[in-house]
């Protein structure tokens, strides 16, 4: 029953437009995600929104690139740098944004276009299951 771990992980890279949250990403994004967790406290949300750059000074292990992506609310970039969507949810929730609003920013569609796509059945998996096999 046991799968070979190398084959298991390699398959993840074959999925178009998807970053699977592996331990490698978890290690890379540890401080992004722990930073996001801090926004579960009201006083921290307030301090972050009042002066974002000052708040980030309290997180010296974040790389300059990670800090900039947080300031820019660049969720696609944050995922590349090891962020996880459930942790990043604390960041967009603090901005008063929903999952739908935040997620749509990664698709190249406007929020309205994305919402309409979801209401008409969502994005088809056709052609988006595998890069190598193209199905």
């Amino acid at each position: 029953m046991k799968q070979d771990i190398h084959e298991y992980l390699a398959e993840f890279d074959d999925i178009p437009g998807t970053r699977v949250y592996t331990t490698k990403r978890a290690r890379q994004g540890y401080w992004i995600n722990q930073f996001a967790m801090s926004l579960m406290k009201e006083e921290n949300r307030k301090a972050w929104l009042e002066n974002e750059e000052k708040y980030l000074e309290g997180w010296p292990k974040l790389t300059p690139e990670q800090k900039q992506a947080l300031l820019d609310r660049d969720y696609d970039k944050l995922l590349d740098l090891g962020g996880n969507i459930y942790f990043l949810a604390k960041v967009f929730s603090t901005d008063g944004k929903s999952y739908l609003q935040a997620v749509s920013t990664m698709t190249g569609m406007s929020v309205d276009e994305y919402r309409d796509m979801m209401l008409s059945g969502g994005r088809s998996p056709e052609g988006l299951r595998s890069k190598s096999k193209g199905y």
Binding site: V103, S104, M106, T107, M118, S124
Partner: peptide, 17 residues
């Protein structure tokens, strides 16, 4: 059930599956 909250494939839904 089916959902994806990230990247360019976000919004994926697979009713048949």
């Amino acid at each position: 059930m089916s959902h994806q909250l990230q990247g360019t494939r976000a919004g994926l839904i697979n009713k048949e599956w």
